[in-house]
Simulated assay, not measured.
Amino acid sequence: MPDSTQLLMFIAAGWLLNLTPGPDVLYIVSSALKSGVRAGMVAALGIVSGCFVHVFAAALGVGALLATSATAFTLLKWAGAAYLMWMGVKLLLAKGGDSSIVPAGVSAEVAAVNLWRVYRQGFLTNVLNPKVALFFLAFVPQFIAPGTEDKVTAFLLLGLLFNLNSLPINFGYAWLAGWASRRVGAVQRAMHWMDRAAGLMFIGFGLKLALSDNPSR
């Protein structure tokens, strides 16, 4: 494990990286704007769950496989790009103001299904992006001391810290977006435009991923 100075640097770097807008932040914000803070937080939990998959995969060598195998990287890359673009098209075709959370008065079972959908989409948005696995493979080992005997355990612990460290940032995005949706009437009235903008951005992220090369080359 890193010493206290390196650990503080790791935490600070993680916060800065999580503040950077991308598909994850876009999904959290759009979920919170449409359906409130709770939906945004559920979206954040789905995204972090996807990160845990990549941490374990990288620790077990799957990340190294993605970094060295063009075929494995390409297959996962196209799957992730297709999913991002599918989400984008879905948002473009959505009716304005459509919410992921059902209104008050419906059964708790129905509400749970919709929250699960928000979680699942956040999870898939992250887990189908091979660059997340490669990011952990490139970023985390820099903070593992060369003399560490059990590097796999150290990698897993740092990956766990990075993911838990991201929750305050992601929850903050959800809270701010939910706060705006409750207090700015124009946001609610123009929700269909937000859907369209988010849809175009997801399609853009998908195209960018589809056209990207394996970073190991």
Rank of each mutant, 00 (worst) to 15 (best):
L45H: 04
L128T: 14
L33I: 07
F123W: 12
P21Q: 12
P103C: 08
A79P: 02
G63Q: 07
F135Y: 14
S30Q: 14
G80L: 07
W78R: 05
F52M: 10
A112I: 03
A133Q: 06
K151A: 11
V140Y: 07
L115T: 02
S107M: 04
L45W: 11
F155V: 06
Y27V: 03
A145V: 13
K34E: 03
A44C: 06
W86V: 12
L84R: 11
G147S: 09
S69F: 10
L60A: 15
E109I: 11
A59K: 09
Y27F: 15
N126K: 00
D150E: 06
A59G: 14
M41K: 00
L137G: 09
K131I: 04
L66P: 01
T153P: 00
V37M: 10
G97N: 06
V118K: 00
G36L: 02
A70E: 13
A81F: 09
V48T: 07
A133N: 04
L65Y: 05
V89P: 03
P130D: 12
V89T: 08
N114T: 11
N114V: 01
V106A: 03
F143M: 13
W116K: 14
N114M: 12
T20H: 00
S107W: 06
L17P: 00
A67M: 10
F143T: 11
L16P: 00
L17G: 08
Q142K: 14
G40C: 02
T153I: 05
M87V: 13
A70S: 13
M85F: 05
R120T: 11
A67R: 08
D98P: 02
A112N: 13
G40L: 00
K151G: 05
S100C: 09
F136K: 05
V113N: 07
F56L: 15
R120V: 03
F143C: 12
N114W: 04
V53E: 03
D150R: 09
E149P: 13
Y83R: 04
V25D: 05
V118W: 01
V42C: 11
P146V: 07
P130Q: 09
A32H: 00
A39L: 08
G63T: 10
F136M: 14
P21T: 11
L91D: 09
P21A: 12
V113F: 11
R120Y: 07
A154D: 08
V152C: 01
S35K: 05
A154V: 02
A57F: 10
